[in-house]
């Protein structure tokens, strides 16, 4: 479902004397449907960078990133938009929303984008928020004022709202208490059981061991450094 083939990435910093920083080289791995792969490596090794490349958030310098039948490295913006709407979900570490939009609408939005009815989307959103122990009193409020853990759970609810066949999870269990951590891991297992191909970053080793079928050490793709 997800196939990364000889992928590289570098940043050119025009504001700092056009310094070129090469961060990844020769990255290759595959994720089959129903499998979860964990990215590991020291902080700064490029785990998040690789994840963002998979999502099309960062450009890919060379190589192929095939998700479904789209090569993210080459795809036109609208192809990536369609991929994100229909195929590829992403739970980032940061919640970025329009201020003052109620939490329930934030969670329901991915479903509405896919054409679900208002009622259907809200029902699913409420179920997810309930499952993730977000107090019902907060659903009508904007998540911008929530605590870190609450925001993280809203982000997860949003990421899991639609049944994506491919999922990217960046630290989904960070800053969660044991109960909620357990819930999130169960949700990941359910997604796997439904056939989702998942790439995740888990600093939480126990969590990684529980849901991941294999790990990729991103350090293997780290080039020499600043050239």
């Amino acid at each position: 479902m997800i196939s990364v083939q000889d992928v590289s990435k570098s940043f050119t910093l025009h504001t700092q004397g056009a310094a070129v920083i090469s961060v990844l080289e020769g990255a290759s791995f595959d994720v089959a449907p129903g499998c979860c792969v964990g990215l590991i490596g020291a902080s700064g090794a490029g785990k998040s960078t690789l994840m963002r490349m998979l999502y099309g958030n960062y450009l890919t310098a060379s190589g192929r990133i095939v998700i479904g039948d789209i090569d993210v490295a080459q795809a036109a913006p609208r192809e990536i938009m369609a991929l994100r709407r229909d195929t590829l979900g992403y739970v980032s570490q940061f919640l970025r929303v329009v201020p003052r939009v109620p939490t329930v609408d934030v969670v329901a939005e991915p479903l509405l984008r896919r054409g679900a009815s208002e009622a259907e989307a809200r029902e699913r959103a409420c179920a997810l928020l309930a499952r993730l122990n977000i107090p019902e009193a907060l659903w009508a409020l904007s998540p911008t004022t929530f605590s870190g853990g609450e925001q993280q759970r809203v982000n997860i609810a949003r990421g899991f709202a639609a049944p994506y066949p491919a999922l990217l999870l960046d630290e989904p269990t960070a800053s969660l208490d044991p109960t909620n951590r357990n819930t999130v891991l169960a949700m990941i297992e359910e997604a796997k059981a439904e056939g989702a191909a998942i790439v995740g970053i888990f600093h939480d080793v126990a969590a990684r061991d529980r849901v991941c079928d294999g790990v990729i050490d991103v350090t293997d793709f780290t080039p020499g450094g600043v050239q």
Partner: peptide, 16 residues
């Protein structure tokens, strides 16, 4: 490009 890509991984010096 995609809005989040241009803002998060800007390529041109001016965009950066």
């Amino acid at each position: 490009g995609l809005t989040d890509q241009v803002l998060d991984d800007p390529q041109h010096g001016y965009t950066q």
